[in-house]
């Protein structure tokens, strides 16, 4: 399991700094080949992001320059100023943060409850419910998209954040499953002991189960945050007033007006990506751990 330290470790000290001196052994050659391949791989994935950052700091004359150059001829913050001028970045950041934060709250409240019912409460509904949870994970969201829209529309909630937030409070199948899998690994004796002590079921849940399940809950919280942060389709369907836009929709709307304002657009993209990047750097072990359990990508 990677640690936070691992990500901020300095560039690797490549062993093959001076290959020419001795006749390199076969092992050495193989290591050089391995370093080359893996560094190349990392660069291929990183490169598009580098161009995003570099374009954001370029002057227009430099942006529209063929052939393209990665290093800006002259660094400028003009694109950021322009982006702030044309897009209410702070407002969109706040809106997106609010939606993401509320979704996380909903997930953290609801999912462990349901997971507990599936993993640790001995009742007849556990198995059928588990099958339902798994089945809904496979369901294309398009199947329910239109009726759900009509429900919210009937409630007069289209245009508000409710359709984007409330579902999280009703439990997300992916996270319920993730936390349930984690809880299965918690010994029953711990819970039984509390029950014998006369603690109510909810008290047992709150004081014993929740603290133990913290790693799984944090993983779910991080992924929920990322999903809400980057979501496009739901805000596209439900938000129609520019003052309520999330960053996704704000960018989409900006591009619809200025299809070639690449400098400011890339600047806005950088601002939009930074919070996600920060969360990734801080919570990397939860990311990698969460993915490796195979529950989601």
């Amino acid at each position: 399991m990677p640690t936070i330290n691992a990500t901020v470790s300095p560039m690797p000290q490549v062993d093959a700094r001076a290959p020419g001196k001795r006749t390199p052994s076969r092992h050495r050659l193989r290591q050089i080949r391995r370093y080359t391949l893996v560094i190349l791989l990392a660069l291929v994935f990183l490169f598009p992001l580098l161009t995003m950052v570099s374009t954001a700091f370029k002057l227009p004359s430099d942006v529209f320059h063929a052939p393209p150059n990665l290093w800006p001829r002259e660094w400028t913050l003009a694109n950021f100023a322009e982006a702030f001028d044309q897009i209410p970045v702070w407002r969109y950041l706040a809106n997106t943060l609010f939606i993401s934060g509320m979704s996380v709250l909903g997930t953290v409240l609801a999912c462990p409850l349901v997971a507990y019912a599936l993993a640790k409460v001995r009742w007849r509904g556990a198995r059928p419910l588990l099958i339902i949870v798994l089945a809904t994970m496979m369901l294309p969201p398009q199947v329910t998209m239109i009726p759900i829209f009509l429900i919210w529309n009937g409630l007069g909630a289209v245009g508000t954040y409710l359709p984007l937030i409330i579902p999280a409070f009703l439990g997300t199948p992916f996270f319920i499953f993730l936390i349930r899998q984690f809880l299965l690994g918690v010994p029953d004796e711990l819970i039984e002991a509390a029950r014998i002590d006369g603690a109510s079921e909810f008290r047992t849940y709150a004081t014993i189960v929740l603290p133990i399940a913290r790693p799984a809950i944090i993983t779910a919280a991080i992924f929920q945050f990322m999903w809400a942060w980057t979501d496009f389709l739901n805000p596209l369907i439900y938000l129609n007033d520019a003052s309520t836009y999330t960053l996704s929709i704000g960018l989409y709307s900006f591009f619809g007006q200025n299809t070639v304002a690449w400098g400011p657009l890339m600047a806005a993209c950088v601002l939009f990506t930074l919070p996600a990047l920060l969360l990734f750097l801080l919570g990397q072990r939860f990311f990698i751990g969460g993915i490796s359990t195979g529950a989601f990508k």
Binding site: T230, L251, L277, F287
Partner: peptide, 11 residues
């Protein structure tokens, strides 16, 4: 390698 996966899809 994982970094692009956290970039908002619109970006």
């Amino acid at each position: 390698v994982y970094l692009p996966s956290i970039v908002p899809i619109v970006v």
